[in-house]
Structures are given as structure tokens and as C-alpha cells.
Design a protein around this nucleic acid. Structure first.
Lengths: 151, 151
DNA sequence: TGGTTACTATCAAACGCTTGATAAGAGCAA
DNA sequence: TTGCTCTTATCAAGCGTTTGATAGTAACCA
């Protein structure tokens, strides 16, 4: 019991793992954005394209669920990427109203360039940790994510 | 070398630590937002109030730097919280143009309630990890954050 | 066959944040 | 003192997102 009426909230809140998690993610994200900027690509674009690359034919709604955003946000990004010729919408073979998303060759090339940047950031972090701690960290993070989702 | 012309981007990108970091943070953040909602408080409100609680008299600009957002975003949140009577702006003793931020008694009470929710989420995660792995994870995350910032 | 349900896509409005620009005060140097 | 610089706060406009609502399509079932 470390709190009293004068100080209603324990200040050790700043030592919480979920805070450390947040700050680490913010720092890494900021670094990625900074490195990606010269390529004219935002982190959100990279994430979307990588998702489509990993699972071609993904639908907008499905993508929205995976990335934890609304379908409209996806549609907005897709429209922009489609306008740049990096992504294309195709009619779903069974559902005429639904559209599949696929990368164009230019999209694959842009993704390759962006991924080189991201891989570099990853390397910068893992070089510091070493391979054992990297594996350990990944395992722990996966446990946290799983636990948070099943809450 | 695991890639060829057909598959320009390695799919093991999905196993990267920085991806695991992102997903864990998203999952935890979503859980916090969900639990905080019944209290009528967003995670951003909680973060801001906790920061002010930890360092009373913080200025808007300073707060903006710590939370990685613009001063306008802070001002917007502060105006709202001030309107609800949770926060107050006071004139800085030396700089008349500058204003210090302080929690009101009602603000402290609201923060206490919100922090109970956050502490519960933290406990939910750490109960699963155990105290050794929790400490380890926290240490690793701090190393990652430091490394990313000094890039 | 017709009706219900579920899922997808999209439009419109509101909200929150950012970028850019403006103004006011404090500190410092000539 | 005057002038320069830094910092803070705030206004205005633009962008991206969410919430809410509408329409189209397929699957299931009475």
C-alpha cells in the first residue's frame, strides 16, 4: 500500500510494462516514419501493402479488421495507392459486389524498396539486442498480444 | 538469400520483432480503450492526466514533446478536460504568457478511477507472464526504446 | 419463391490531429 | 535602452479518421 489521500495515484504507474510497451512502439514507429518519408510512403501504406502481399486477394473489410481500423480508412488508403498504380481492385470471383486487392508490379517494386528500409530498422534494433534476446522478446510480445486479445 | 523475382519481399517480415511489438501494443491499447470507455475517458485523456499528475505544473508545449504530439493537440485535450473541471490552467509564476497545468480534486478522483482500470489491465498481462518474465520484458522494451531514439 | 440475415462497399458529417502562420513574453547582447 | 532570438500559445486550413446511415449482393431458410 503506497498511496494516501494526498497522492491518490501511485506514481510507479510509470514503470508498468504496458507503458514501456507503448514508449517502445512509439519510438520504433517514429523511426520507421522518418526513414520511410524520403520514399514518399507512410507507415500505414507499407503496412497495408505488406498485408496484401502476404495474403493476395484480401478484401477491404477483412483488411480493416486485421489492421484495427475502419473499412473507410482502408478504402481511403486503397484509393490513393490505386491512383498511384501500386494497388488494384479486382472483382471477387463469387461475390460481384466485393473486390479483391492485389499489388501491381509497380506496387511490388515500391514495397520492396520500403521493406528494405523497414528491414534496416529491424536490424538496427536486433543488432543491439543480440539473437537470443531478440527471440525472447518476440516470444514475450506474442504472449502479451495473445493475452490482451483473449481478455 | 531467400527471395527471388516472383516474391520480391520476404514473408518472414511478419516474424519481425517490430511487428510483434506493434501487434502487442495495438492489442493492449484496444483493451485499455475498451475498459476506459465506460468511464467516459479516452486513453489519451488518461495519459495526459497521468503525466500532469506525475509532474504538476507541466506546460502545454513540454507535454506535447513528451507525448509525441503537437501543442495544438494538447491544447484541444486540455480545453476539453478543463471544461469538465478535471484540469486547470494557472499562470506561470515567471512567464506570464505561459500557463501551468494542474489537476483539480475532481481530476484526481477521475484519474484514480481510470488508473484502477489501467492497473487491472496491467495485472491481467503480468499475471500471465509471471514476475520474472515481466521484469525481463520491461528491460528489453526499454532497451528497444532507447536504441530506436538514438538512431 | 420470397423473405430474412449477414457482409461488403460507400456516402456524408463530425471529430481529432497536423501543418503553417501569427502574436506575445522572456532572456540576452550590443 | 533597442534589437535579436527562443519559447509559448493560439488561430486557420487541410487531411485522415471515425461514426452513422444507405445500398447492393450472397447465403440461408421458410
Amino acid at each position: 500500500m503506497t498511496r494516501n489521500d494526498e497522492d491518490p495515484v501511485a506514481l510507479d504507474a510509470l514503470d508498468r510494462v504496458t507503458w514501456a510497451l507503448r514508449r517502445a512502439e512509439l519510438a520504433v514507429l517514429a523511426l520507421k516514419e522518418q526513414r520511410l518519408r524520403p520514399l514518399g510512403m507512410a507507415a500505414a501504406h507499407y503496412t497495408l501493402m505488406m498485408s496484401v502481399h502476404a495474403e493476395p486477394g484480401l478484401t477491404g473489410a477483412e483488411l480493416a479488421r486485421r489492421l484495427n481500423v475502419t473499412p473507410q480508412a482502408i478504402a481511403s488508403l486503397v484509393t490513393r495507392l490505386e491512383g498511384r498504380g501500386l494497388l488494384e481492385r479486382r472483382e471477387h470471383p463469387r461475390h460481384r459486389h466485393v473486390q479483391e486487392l492485389h499489388l501491381t508490379p509497380a506496387g511490388r517494386e515500391a514495397l520492396r524498396a520500403a521493406d528494405a528500409v523497414i528491414a534496416d530498422v529491424e536490424r538496427h534494433v536486433t543488432d543491439d539486442l543480440g539473437s537470443d534476446d531478440t527471440s525472447e522478446l518476440r516470444a514475450l510480445l506474442n504472449r502479451v498480444a495473445k493475452r490482451a486479445r483473449e481478455a
